[in-house]
């Protein structure tokens, strides 16, 4: 068995304002093995980004409150380490590709300066400037951008190239864990394929583990070893990619997600969307959070939170099982 690089236990996060409490992440647990990729899927507002920001301790300080739980990174609880320690980890050992690639870059700095900045900040080996300049070029070439373009500003690059620069910055320090929050959503399919192939290759080369956040089940099927399905701030199903894509039993929400997708292979006259909407995170239903929309709801579902039904690597949180 390989060891766990990251272990999240019972994490609960809320955004609190004077007016309301948004229960964004509710008691979630999962772990990530070294070298593997975990996909987090779920609709908008499911709590995916909040989970990622908790790992990096980048939640908005004023409103976001971590209510409970622990996040162990190689055995060290990130939630209790001082900010000075986090500064050493963030960007160097754990880095993140943010959801909005187009705003992640500074428009008034050349791409050379932006990559160099990260390297200089985490300059543990006290590399001289010349070494850093060489590393910038190497990193750019690694993501398929000719080093001759290092003096370019972000606006001179296409969307796909900008996203590759963002990835270059995230990988510059060769992190042990890469968190990619919808890294290809804004890209065209042929460019998305390029970027995904590149991430895959770099991951193997640098032996990086990854959390891939997306709502595209196609991307998950093609890139992830394990998959975690989130709904209303909870993990409702988790397992290996085989469990999620080929096992016969699933959470009704997962069934609904797959039923909503137009199928490229089969001819389907009508799609089967999930009726209704995600519940209001300030006023979550009792019992199973999916119960108001669930076609297979039973009385117990509205009363009691479902416990995990575990079958090997596959867990489903539903009273049906």
């Amino acid at each position: 068995m390989s060891e766990n690089l990251l272990e999240i236990k019972n994490l609960t996060v809320a955004y609190e304002t004077d007016l309301e409490t948004i229960r964004a992440v509710n008691n979630i647990s999962f772990s990530l093995e070294r070298g593997s990729t975990l996909g987090i899927v779920g609709e908008t507002g499911a709590g995916k980004t909040t989970t990622a920001l908790s790992i990096l301790r980048l939640l908005p300080e004023r409103t976001a409150k971590i209510k409970s739980g622990s996040i162990l990174f190689k055995g060290e609880n990130l939630l209790s380490c001082p900010e000075s320690r986090m500064l050493k980890i963030r960007g160097a050992r754990i880095s993140m590709i943010f959801q909005d690639p187009m705003t992640a870059l500074n428009p008034i700095l050349t791409i050379e300066d932006q990559i160099g900045e990260t390297l200089r900040f985490h300059n543990a080996e006290n590399r001289p400037n010349a070494k850093i300049a060489a590393k910038v070029e190497e990193t750019l070439e690694m993501v398929g951008i000719p080093a001759s373009r290092k003096k370019d500003y972000p606006h001179q690059l296409s969307g796909g190239m900008k996203q590759r620069v963002v990835i270059a910055i995230a990988l510059a320090c060769e992190p042990e864990l890469l968190i990619a929050d919808e890294p290809t959503t804004a890209l065209d399919v042929t460019i998305q394929a390029q970027v995904l192939a590149m991430i895959e290759e770099l991951k193997t080369r640098l032996d990086t583990s990854m959390i891939m956040i997306t709502h595209d089940l196609g991307v998950v099927a093609q890139t992830c070893d394990d998959v975690c399905v989130m709904y209303a701030g909870e993990v409702i199903e988790i397992g290996s990619a085989e469990d999620i894509f080929t096992a016969p039993a699933h959470h009704p929400y997962t069934v609904g997600l797959f039923g909503s997708l137009p199928n490229l292979k089969a001819e389907t006259a009508r799609l089967n969307p999930i009726a209704g909407l995600m519940p209001d995170p300030t006023d979550l239903p009792k019992g199973c959070k999916f119960s108001p929309r669930c076609p297979r709801r039973m009385d117990v579902c509205e009363e009691k939170e479902p416990a995990a039904f575990v079958n090997g690597t596959h867990s489903i949180y539903c009273h049906l099982f």
Binding site: D188, A193, A197, A241, T246
Partner: peptide, 21 residues
Amino acid sequence: AIPVPDIAMRKKKAEVLGGEV
């Protein structure tokens, strides 16, 4: 280039188109 939601297609690596529009 379409990522298909089917893990059986995973081993068959898509032919990635180079270059930009």
